[in-house]
Amino acid sequence: MSVLRLHPQKCTGCLRCELACSYMQTGEFQPAKSVIRVSPFEGHTSYAPYTCTQCAEGWCMTACPVGAITINAVGAKDVLDDKCVGCKLCTIACPYGTMFYDPGTRKAFKCNLCGGAPACAEACPTAAITYEDVATADWLGDFAVERTARVLAEAR
């Protein structure tokens, strides 16, 4: 299956992916509703996007008490709005922090790979997000270690 592959060293922090994602999710531009989030590293000099890795374990699916999380046609875990009761268990279960809860709709929401044409990958001007047929992985670990080393050293 194809997944979103993240290349954090290419990210410039322009947040274009958040805009594109929120438009796909809500029809409006509202980064607070985006399911891809750009985080700063080293305080402000480096940025990296992060979103659901579509992990094999599927913690969110396992945790959901009402079976509202399913696997869609392109292999992404997706929330079925009519089944979700808004209990937020999935947001607790997800070890990556990529399950979100919308207090407006009282539903959980997450990356569903836009049904096979992810808007974030299309929108990224530096190809820091690509949609590829590769095994999913922890794309950010090494980058985060390297880029926060300076901050941690200063904090000590």
Partner: peptide, 8 residues
């Protein structure tokens, strides 16, 4: 890179 909003 340290781009402004939505800039490529």
């Amino acid at each position: 890179g340290h781009q402004c909003n939505a800039c490529g």
